[in-house]
Every structure is written in C-alpha cells, then in structure tokens.
Write a protein that binds this DNA or RNA. Structure first.
Lengths: 347, 347
DNA sequence: GTGAAAGCGCTAACAT
DNA sequence: ATGTTAGCGCTTTCAC
C-alpha cells in the first residue's frame, strides 16, 4: 500500500455528516457550543472515516502542541528512568505527550535547545546534568515555561523543583553519627551538578557541626554511575588499608551499588560490620536482597506534581513566574547498610 | 514575561534580510537552490531575531513531522530502557525525535494508537507492549510505517524486527546440557508475549531433541519482572525440596536476577553449585558482581539499525513493505551461573 | 447553535 | 537563483 494514503480531514467528515467544517471542529473541542444532535452526527461520520483531528494542524492555530519536552542526560541511572516514566504517565493523563531529548555525555545542550524550539513544545523539563543559562534564557525569551528538575543554576532566575538535597545529606550524616561512625568518605557524583554538590555540602556541614574534623572526611569522585562508584571505592579502599573510613556516603544509589559490589566482592569488606554505607534516591534496585541499601527517598510523584504545577501548562497566557524554587524533603529509609543505633531501641 | 511573546517568523527574517520569504525557507532547507550570498544574509538575519523554523508548520505542508512514536509498556525491564535510549540517540542523529507513549499495565493500547495518529508521526515503533492487530491495521491503513520490536503478531502481516528468541532458547538449552543438567525449570514472562513464548519453545524443543522428557521441564510464570522472578523461584523451590531442578532458565535477565536473589538469600541455594541458571538479554545489571549471569546477548544496536531500515523513514513515498520479519541471532555469553563444561577445556 | 471566511507559518509548484 | 502564489488542516472571529 502506498504510504500516501491521505487521511480524512474535517472537510470529509463535514461532507459526510452534512454539516459545516467548523461544526466538525467544534464536535472535537471540549466545551464548544454545539448541539448534542450535531455532535452526534459528526462523531458518527468521523468514526466511519476513522477520522482523528490532526493535532499538528491545530497546533498551528492554537500555538499549543500538547507536547512537553523532556531533556534527559543519563539514563543509566534508574532514578531518571522512573522520573521519565512518571512524567510520561502523568502527562498522558491530561492528553499531552513527552518528546524525548537525550543528551550524550558531554554533548552540547545548545544543540538540543534548537530542536526543542523547532517543535513548539508547550513546556520543557530539564533533567540533564548540566543546565545552561543559555537554554533557560532562550526559553524565557520565547515564553516557553521551563523547569529544572532536581538541579538549578546558581544565580539564575530559572525555576526549579528538587529534592532537598542538602537536607538529605544531613540526614545521612545524622544516621552515621547515631551509629557511631568516626571517619568518613563520600563518593560524589558529577562535580558540576548541583544535586551532588548539595548532598555533599549538607553532609559535610552536619558533620562539622557535630565536631568532626574536615580531615576526617574524604571526598571521592564517582561520576554518578555504577562503574564510577565501583572504581572510586576500589581505589580508595585498596590504598588506605590501615586508616579506612568506617562510613561511606554515596551521593546516589547507583554509585552506592557499585561501591558495595567493589567493597564486598573485590576487597572482602563486610557491610555494615566493617563499613556502614548509605545512598540517595531510593531506587527499587537498592531495595533488593544483595543491597538492602539505607538511603534517602526522593518523593518522585510529589516532585513530578510540583513540576507540573510550576510549568502551569493550562494557563499559557499567564505571565511566567521566574525563580521559583521548590525544595521537597526526602525521607530517610533505614535498611541494613547502617547498623541500627542502640538508642533506637531505648524508650 | 508574558508567555505570548510571539516568535519571529520567516516573514520577519525575510524583511530584515531584504529577501523574499521563500528565500528564508530555502536557506533552511538542505540542498535547496539558493546562492551562498543570500543564504548568508538570511542566516544572519535569522540569528539576530533568534529565528528557528517552526517544524509544526512545515509538517503541515510536507506531511512529515520528523517525529517517531515509541510505544512502551513496561520500563521496569532495563532492557527496554536501553532500547529507548538507543532509538532516541540514533534518531536524533538524523534530526528526528522520539515521542513516548507509555501504556499502563492493562491499559487499552487502542487509546494510545489514537494519540499516535493525532501527532502525524512518521513512523511507530512498538515495544515492551502488547501489539494489537487493530493498531497495526490502522497504521497500515494510514500509510504510517510501523514495526514491532522484539514481538510479532502471529498470522498478521505487520513487520517485525526481533532477536532470534527461539534460537536463543536453544542456545541456553545446549549450555545446560553441556554442563550436565538433567532436570529443568523455566520461568516464563508474559504468557501472551511472543518473546517469552519463543524463548521457552526453543528451549523445550532443544531439550526434547536431546532426549529429555517433557515432565523433566517445569514451566513457571514470572510476569517478566524482578518481583515475578523472585516469587516464582521462591514458590517452586520451597515446595519441591527433594526433587529440585538442577538448571533454571529465566526468560529474561531481570527475572533471573529476581530468581537468584530469592534462591540465594531466602533459600540458601548456591549458584551454580546447587543450581545452574541462565537469563536472556544481557543487561548491564546482570554483568555485575553479585549476579555474573550467563545469558544470551541481544544485539540491540543491530536491532535498532534494522528497525530503522524497515521503517524506511527517508523514502516516505515508497510502498510500505508488509510482513517483514528480521530475526537476529543472539550470542551466548558465558559467565558464572553455569559451570563451564569440562569438554570446553579439551582439544 | 451554526456556517463562512480569514488566517496560523511553512513548503512547493510555478513563473521569471 | 529568486519571488509569487496557492495551499496544508485546523481554530476562531464574525455574522446570522
């Protein structure tokens, strides 16, 4: 069959239903003023011709595409896969679709932004590691709402919805302290990413408050990946056999999993007996039997909801609010990589 | 800033550059006949106005949106996340984007197809979801190329690109046989999915050829998920303590991981000493230290390439070929969940 | 409540 | 090589 089989248009439907083309348009527009009777006739004719309104054409006049761009950096972190899924499901419920833009590791995000603009998306959600002001500026300039998901640009007025990452870092610090740890290491993620920076900062701040010395906290690089976590742990713990840390905070779960595997399988470290360990995100993988990872849960559904409310897709004529920052508290989830402190059994 | 900030059109650019609007269009059309000089003027003016061609508008005339729909059911299987990533990257290279349609577990896929049609996508790739003939028929009828990725509809003329799943099942059977296994279990995935069916069928066929009795092969249901694999293994191996199988084939890696965790952590089964085990897909997770899963690797990149070639996005006027079936051989990857047979050391 | 008509921003003949 | 013109399929005034 030729690919040029032209689909039925609203005119075809109108002709068959014996009404005007505008009537057809109205029949498919929720809340348009049309008689039940005519709507019925139209819908019937449409069904016969298997007519579906062409949303490309309607976008042209309405200036709304019902498409939201989701810019993703890395999908090797399962957390962002859940985020993608959550957004897609949620958006579909309201008749919108997600257009995916994947950024290669160090790909220029400016190339992506041009694509985004082409497609006249109604909004953009940016979860890629490096958010550029150029990207947010262009969107602002065009009146396209954009929100940064779990990241922000310091000093910019771009809106963002994120987990309270610093607060989460503090929670981990407290858990370690309660369990009696004294010497620490943290495996950080992307050094340029605010997510990792904040988690590390919160952790260290809380540690210093408790009287720990800065020299008791080693900071390693894990590049936000399983392999990075694995390599960082292997390197650090092979080197310092005598003065090893007794607590390790990995800035996300996927790195924590990598670190755990390196420590247990390569170095024979027992967790939590020899070393206590915590992650961040609460991905399902971390809940599995081999890991049982203590972590901070990011409330994804809530964050998605907030993002959508900031995006405010339904009132496109509104002025876009700038500089919104919605930090959302995470929740510490105790599992078995930190021994439950004795004090928890008291009272 | 008001969201209504209207973006520059090709007319604005034309006016500024002192050329006609069509010149602007040509300047942005690769291979259009335009003088270098004029193109330069246009591009300059465009830059000044930060003009980007509106691809929605151009789709209306060209009838090509440069958007490919990817219909995904389940993203809890990491394999399909890789598939998504691969498609997105590959398509972006050629200036196309992926529009995601996620199907809820038992959601009506017919609802999704209507959405797909609205967006005038250039092609649709259906994966990790149940394929309905209704969906493929509608696409065919409209002249929208569709290919089923790693699934097919028996008796239909819908095109499909897939791993040679039956062949992969046979490869696993042979590995078990070579390692001396005698009593078998397989954890199947979605009973309605051809992917799972074929893998199971290939496995059993090969077993029967080797003289095994059908009664020596138990088939369990694992619903294609980690939890399903976990539950199936737990149930089967708790029940039959005396006559346990000595080899377990899980129809995909994610179920194999679930089964392994249940067996080792709940039942104390040693792998491969007490039980040898294999998966299918070769997801990165299965390569990790706690699993080291022997499996069949699906050549994702090749499959993606084939899919795109069947989709044939660049020759839209071509007749759509129907009923293409491109099975691609997988590769057995030996890791540590099947003991290497002695014969491998010979010769 | 309904129809006629004017675009939305672009591409693709068609002239020149 | 360039400009002119006619749509693409829809939404949206505007009359009636």
């Amino acid at each position: 069959m030729a690919r040029t089989t032209s689909r039925a248009t609203s005119f075809d439907v109108a002709a068959l239903a014996g009404v005007s083309q505008s009537a057809v348009s109205r029949a498919f527009t929720p809340g348009a003023s049309i008689a039940d009777d005519t709507r019925h006739k139209v819908l019937e004719a449409a069904a016969k011709l298997s007519y579906v309104p062409n949303s490309i054409a309607s976008s042209l006049t309405t200036k709304r595409s019902n498409i939201v761009a989701l810019i993703l950096g890395d999908m090797s972190n399962p957390f962002y896969v859940h985020v993608l899924h959550a957004f897609s499901n949620r958006l579909q419920e309201e008749g919108r679709q997600v257009l995916i833009f994947t950024l290669d590791r160090n790909a220029d995000s400016d190339a992506a932004i041009l694509q985004v603009l082409k497609y006249q998306v109604d909004g953009v959600i940016l979860t890629a590691a490096q958010a550029s002001t150029r990207m947010t500026d262009i969107c602002h300039e065009r009146g396209i709402p954009i929100v940064l998901f779990n990241r922000y640009i310091p000093g910019s007025d771009a809106s963002c919805v994120r987990c309270d990452n610093a607060g989460g870092g503090r929670q981990i610090a407290e858990a370690f302290l309660a369990a009696g740890a004294q010497k620490f290491a943290v495996i950080a993620g992307d050094p340029k990413g605010t997510t990792s920076q904040d988690r590390v900062r919160g952790f260290i701040e809380r540690m210093l408050e408790s009287g720990a010395r800065r020299s008791d906290i080693a900071v390693l690089e894990g590049r936000s990946s399983y392999d990075g976590g694995y390599a960082a742990a292997l390197k650090h713990f092979s080197a310092n056999t005598q003065s090893r840390p007794d607590a390790l905070f990995c800035v996300n779960d996927i790195m924590a999993m990598g670190a755990m595997d390196a420590l247990r399988f390569k170095l024979g470290v027992k967790i939590p007996q020899d070393l206590m360990l915590a992650g961040f995100d609460d991905i399902p993988e971390g809940r599995r039997a081999p890991y049982q990872l203590t972590t901070v849960r990011q409330p994804v559904d809530l964050m998605v909801e907030e993002t959508l409310s900031v995006l405010n897709l339904d009132q496109p004529s509104q002025t876009i609010e700038r500089g919104i920052d919605r930090p959302i508290k995470g929740k510490l989830i105790w599992r078995s990589t930190i021994p439950v402190p004795v004090s928890n059994f008291r009272a």
